[in-house]
Computed example of a mutant assay.
Amino acid sequence: MDRITTYALFAIKAFLSIAFLAAGGAKLYGVAMMVGTFDMIGVGQWFRYLTGVIEVAAAILLWVPGLRAIGAGALLVTMIGAIIAHLAILGPSAMPAAVLGLLAGVVLYAHRREFARTPG
Rank of each mutant, 00 (worst) to 15 (best):
I54F: 03
Q45S: 13
A59M: 01
G101E: 05
A82C: 10
L28M: 04
T6G: 02
I70S: 00
L103E: 09
D2M: 03
K27H: 12
G24R: 03
L100P: 07
G105I: 05
P119T: 09
V99M: 14
A97H: 11
M79V: 09
A74V: 02
L28D: 06
G91V: 09
W63P: 00
F15N: 06
L90E: 10
F15W: 12
A82K: 11
W46K: 07
L16E: 14
G44I: 09
T78C: 04
M95S: 11
A14P: 02
L102I: 14
I70K: 01
R113Y: 05
A72G: 11
T78N: 09
L75W: 02
M95T: 10
L100S: 09
G44P: 10
R48Y: 03
I4F: 12
V77Y: 03
R117C: 04
I18N: 02
T6E: 14
V53N: 03
G52D: 03
I89S: 10
P119K: 08
L67F: 00
H86A: 08
A82N: 08
P92W: 08
W46C: 04
T51K: 12
A85D: 13
A26L: 12
D39E: 15
L62Q: 01
M34Q: 13
I12W: 09
A104E: 10
M95Y: 13
R117Q: 15
L50R: 02
A72N: 10
M1E: 07
G25D: 05
A85S: 11
V56T: 06
V77M: 07
G30K: 15
R68K: 07
R117S: 14
